[in-house]
Nucleic acid binder design. Structure first.
Lengths: 246, 246
DNA sequence: TTAATAGTGTCTATAAGACAATATATA
DNA sequence: TATATATTGTCTTATAGACACTATTAA
């Protein structure tokens, strides 16, 4: 803990502190590419260098980091992130990382369902399972590293909980959940093993004592599940949720 | 990413940024208490409030967080942390958390073997497995929360790797490794299951083609292992390292 | 009918969890 | 010898991984 003497807050220079945000989404499938894909929201810089970057902004007095993240999207992208909670991934604290001076960056990861990103699809770039841009391009500054660690963190979270980033709403089918996980992991999963394990942590949605089914899929209607047990996993349960791969 | 206009760094007030550090160790066993115990290094404040706090210090221009952590201990405790790497756990960013003004705190966790803390045992307080002080006391400010999250993080890391904080030196026996894990987890482990799993990620120390044994234990001499595979676990292996409990 | 998706049955290999036995040292 | 610790053997249970099968819808 720091010194309490009255002068202690003014003795030394202070850094500028910014938030940078990897806003990830799992995009809707297309005819050409039936699998769901991970995408990241980028900004095109208007000054040099002109490459894409993760959105960000300085933190202002009276704001939390979460406030600054929400403000970044409302001011720079015109996007309301609603109740989504950005997660701090790490601090970029190399004193030389910004040529303008001493700038710390707080990297956050945030995920939103693609339905909340309609109208700004042009700012979404596909990302592979390791966190590299699918088209082989690079982000400016140290943002390539940031994206890689964001994707890694999100993948890990999805290995431990059914839908920690709440990309699916309050009810969903196992097929929707599996599509989401395959998008996050970037690889196909075993249907039966996945379903059996996930069912341990979900409860069927009941109306009048009868299970609810989803009829939009084209095949046999799927049972609908609630997210109820999310976040209430025991330590023992958490371990078992690590996902099977093909 | 932030604006590049020349005025952007001076437009807004900047926060003071401090590091606070939960320095954890697994204390040597005593006669009264044969089990190893988790302990944390605290400072006794000289001004009010006078309770114990985690050591910390403002970050100065040109320093990384790691630099500031090392400086905290060399200046305030007279301790050289050597090559140990502090890990950032999170940022405490509530604008109201410090009555002196806008102070962000970067909480770090760091672990050192108890052999490096000789002479300052008086500043070590026992901690239970949840991260509460064993004597029921509280730390000042928001440092109780910090300690809880530090212990949780350390415990999780030890569930995923044999000795991620390098508390054991380059060679060790399975008994030493088990004592360490029991100290970190705060509960006994199954000896045979623990050994079998850990052996997958360790290699026996060989001299002249013969395995080396440790004769200090009083019973049958134990095989000595190297840490060689630490940090080189595959994803598949990492999952299997989660530990069995009694 | 066919196609598509949902869901179940079952087998094998692996490992956790548990208990017991054996091995090798010191006092 | 007794005692302490290390190490191995083995049994049961659980489950991942894999494959095949059945079920229920739409077109």
């Amino acid at each position: 803990m720091v010194d309490m003497s009255p002068s202690s807050l003014s003795t030394y220079p202070r850094p500028s502190v910014a938030v940078d945000v990897a806003l990830l989404t799992v995009g809707a499938a297309t005819d050409a590419d039936p699998a769901q894909r991970l995408k990241v929201l980028v900004q095109q810089r208007t000054s040099t260098p002109r490459g894409p970057v993760l959105p960000g902004r300085f933190v202002r007095e009276g704001e939390t980091f979460a406030d600054a993240v929400a403000a970044t999207f409302s001011e720079k992208v015109g996007l309301d992130i609603g109740g989504a909670e950005p997660r701090l991934l790490g601090m970029y604290d190399d004193p030389q990382r910004d040529e303008r001076g001493w700038v710390l960056s707080a990297l956050h990861v945030l995920a939103l369902p693609s339905s909340m990103l309609e109208g700004i699809e042009g700012q979404l770039l596909a990302v592979d399972a390791e966190g590299h841009l699918a088209d082989g391009r690079s982000l400016e500054f140290d943002h390539d590293d940031m994206l890689i660690s964001a994707v890694r963190r999100m993948r890990r979270h999805y290995e431990e909980s059914p839908d920690p980033y709440r990309l699916l709403g309050d009810t969903f089918t196992l097929g929707q959940l599996r599509d989401l996980h395959e998008g996050v992991l970037g690889e196909p999963l075993l249907k039966d093993t996945f379903n059996r394990r996930m069912k341990q942590y979900l409860t069927e949605k009941l109306v009048g004592g009868e299970p609810v089914r989803e009829h939009e899929t084209g095949g046999r209607p799927a049972l609908v599940y609630n997210r109820t047990k999310d976040g209430t996993l025991t330590e023992r349960e958490r371990r078992r949720l690590l996902l099977p791969r093909r």
